[in-house]
Write a protein that binds this DNA or RNA. Sequence first.
DNA 1: TAAAGTAGTTTATAAAATAAACCAAATTTG
DNA 2: CAAATTTGGTTTATTTTATAAACTACTTTA
Lengths: 94, 94
Amino acid sequence: MFKELDPLLHSQLRLAIVSILMSVDSAEFTYLKEQTQSTAGNLSVQLDKLSEAGYIQIDKSFNGKKPLTTCSITKKGIKAFDDYVKTLQGYIKK
Amino acid sequence: MFKELDPLLHSQLRLAIVSILMSVDSAEFTYLKEQTQSTAGNLSVQLDKLSEAGYIQIDKSFNGKKPLTTCSITKKGIKAFDDYVKTLQGYIKK
DNA sequence: TAAAGTAGTTTATAAAATAAACCAAATTTG
DNA sequence: CAAATTTGGTTTATTTTATAAACTACTTTA
């Protein structure tokens, strides 16, 4: 029937973030912000949620004295994304 | 880049409703409730939203003296669903 | 050295989803 | 046959989520 769509991925911004991270090795905060056209605040919140779920890994370092946040997808995140896409097929392929 | 996902369809329940209505001529309230495993309250609210957007048509009649709510998708709804799926491909086909 | 910019985080607010409570009629049950 | 339950919903309240606004800390530039 209709399997639950992982609510963590069923959000426009988080889906876009994960989608980007699926296609690159890692991405910086500013890159994600630019690509997704999101505000920094919203991006920050959604990255935290994905990180807390273990879907992405966030590495906070410094570029000289500027903070530098780098994100990458985890195995768990890849699995979740794949599952999400499969579940979604069940909705739209009817 | 990342086109906006129609917020009216980007909801688990409404997507399931529209998905069902895409595959049948019409469906009764009770059938939709059973198929989507939703509560009557939630279903009622979401059907109203889809109806107000012109995505579905709701016909309220009586079966003897019991209310009978029958729903079907509209042309606008079909278009919106197709667009939604296309937009989504842009997210997941990366 | 004051103003503006960078790279974010935290907190507040708006919007959405969901649940709970309710209604009217019909049906079942003790 | 009268009370309790079920059916087919709607309305209202609550919770959750997404988003925006405000803030921090440091840096660059005029």
